[in-house]
Design a protein around this nucleic acid. Structure first.
Lengths: 252, 252
DNA sequence: CCGGTCTGTTCTTCACAGCGGAAGAGTAGC
DNA sequence: GCTACTCTTCCGCTGTGAAGAACAGACCGG
């Protein structure tokens, strides 16, 4: 039996026990969570709110809480530390050039995960989303990666029962368009007031994490200008290519 | 983008962010974790210790931390709240009869999870392990459940590369013995100074959570008496049968 | 529809738990 | 053995986390 750490953190213990309960037992009422943890209902409510905020829990319509995406992973984690290390200086240079927030994204299953961000300096800007998850079929970087996949693979991913995509054919048409243009735009589909442009990192080899990685520029919709799109796209794809080249160099 | 809860808990936020980093990016050094969270190394160390304690992280020999079992689940959670509700009074009655700690266990994949415990009142006793995880092939309740499975299924579970079981044939021989006797004993294989006797709950129907549930009596090895084993086994299997009957009634 | 019960959410106060700096310990390479 | 790097332990202090209470919402039965 593991011993409690000497310098344990009680609040963290409560949160982790609750997360494990959700993962192992499924739907829980707030009042039951409070009882199981031996805390006040208001404390349990605060803990659940934090778990929901960080995607360890979700609240259903019947008000019960269930495990969130982080606890519902269906694939083993893959190390992306190296990709992040290589990409980050390029992200920062791109952000410096355009003074908008840029992101490194990895697609796992049907989720687009923000691995790294570099924030612009303007007062109104999109914040750091590292660690967050968006549906891949809506996010700009997610769609840029999906556009690099075989159509059969996309069908396998989104054609199953319970899929978040009602019309796979419409998605495939969108992805063909993304493929032709070389980038994808997400205009407020996932976040109010945010427009993002995404482009996939050209994969040096099939497989590996870079085969599912993308960059995106995320800016307040108020600053999105159609006439600047070619410039943003050019910088985005140039940066993606630089990262791809450095990944090759790093492997040699 | 989700808003931070109004009554957020900073320490919990740190822990959950760190857990998500481990899940998404794999191996992390303590110093890198500290930098990523923006906290002191001593704080990161405390957080990682809590994550390890609650099975959200593991530390490898090279000292890096990786995602732990809770974050590495490969199966969707199943609700066991109902099973727990039905079983708990019976657990408590059994504990009262023998004054030793009893447990309800559910096997998921190759893990035996403690869903509920009822503690004896003696000064030296096995504590409440609800929420904990043990390897199923070593735990008494885990082995009792594995003994109810097809041998092909056990082979599929433990015959793969990277399996924790080196000799599947030896495991199958053990499980045949468990099946014949109707119970399994775990004498200090998972926890120093603890001996446990486990018996599976007879499944009312194939599938469902009860098909992978077991009860166990856990006592200090110093109090384990071979001549009391028949009594303990009889009480254990009687209790398991009562629970199984009540599960059937509850579905009608 | 109303009242009662149950459950979830919001707010405030205060004491002690969580944080970080510093010291100590461990590891790896030359 | 020495140096540099990294991890682990310890302690004091203040602001954060917990819980009580009030409020709000949901549900059910008469």
């Amino acid at each position: 039996m593991k011993n409690r750490p000497v310098y344990g953190i009680q609040s963290v213990d409560h949160a982790l026990r609750l997360a494990a309960l959700l993962a192992q037992e499924g739907p829980l009422r707030l009042s039951e969570a409070a009882e199981r943890l031996g805390v006040a209902r208001s404390t349990a409510h605060r803990l659940l709110a934090m778990l929901v905020y960080r995607d360890f829990a979700e609240q259903r319509e019947d008000r019960r809480y269930v495990a969130g995406p982080v606890l519902r992973r269906v694939e083993a984690p893959e190390p992306v530390t190296e990709l992040r290390r290589i990409a980050l200086p390029h992200l920062q240079a791109l952000t410096e050039a355009i003074d908008e927030t840029t992101n490194l994204i990895v697609v796992v299953g049907d989720q687009a995960r923000f691995v790294a961000s570099a924030e612009g300096t303007q007062v109104l800007r999109v914040g750091d989303r590292a660690g967050r998850v968006l549906p891949a079929h809506l996010a700009s970087g997610g769609r840029a990666v999906l556009a690099t996949l075989d159509e059969d693979r996309v069908r396998a991913l989104y054609g199953r029962a319970g899929s978040p995509v009602a019309d796979v054919d419409a998605l495939l048409r969108d992805l063909r368009r993304v493929r032709r243009r070389g980038f994808a735009v997400n205009d407020r589909k996932t976040e109010t007031g945010v427009t993002a442009i995404g482009a996939a990192i050209p994969a040096p080899t099939a497989g590996g994490v870079a085969a599912r990685a993308a960059l995106s520029i995320a800016l307040p919709t108020a600053r999105y200008r159609r006439d600047r799109l070619p410039e943003w796209v050019a910088r985005l794809t140039t940066t993606a290519e630089r990262i791809a080249h450095e990944l090759v160099d790093d492997q040699a």
